[in-house]
Amino acid sequence: MTDAEIQQKLTAIFRSVLDKDSIELTATTTAKDIEGWDSLTHVDLIVAVEKGFKVSFTTKEVMALQSVGDLMRLIASRCK
């Protein structure tokens, strides 16, 4: 999967989970930039990403995530 493909798919997942079609993701996007991305929906997002990309993260990896860029790198490392 290319980075662009990952970004596109990730955007679709965020839009679906947060129920907002206007969401645009970049590598530097963080929770603060997106309305509705809070500790509650963060869990929903992680579960949806794991399901959507058919990957599984470790607890440590999930806890270390700081931005969308981190998440995209994590996905890329699993979807080679």
């Binding site: 500790s39 929903d44 992680i46 579960v47 993260f57 470790t58 607890t59």
Partner: peptide, 15 residues
């Protein structure tokens, strides 16, 4: 779901 328990004290897998 031990991971969700660790990060969010979730009762079980969300599904």
């Amino acid at each position: 779901d031990e991971k969700l328990w660790a990060i969010a004290k979730s009762f079980c897998a969300l599904e």
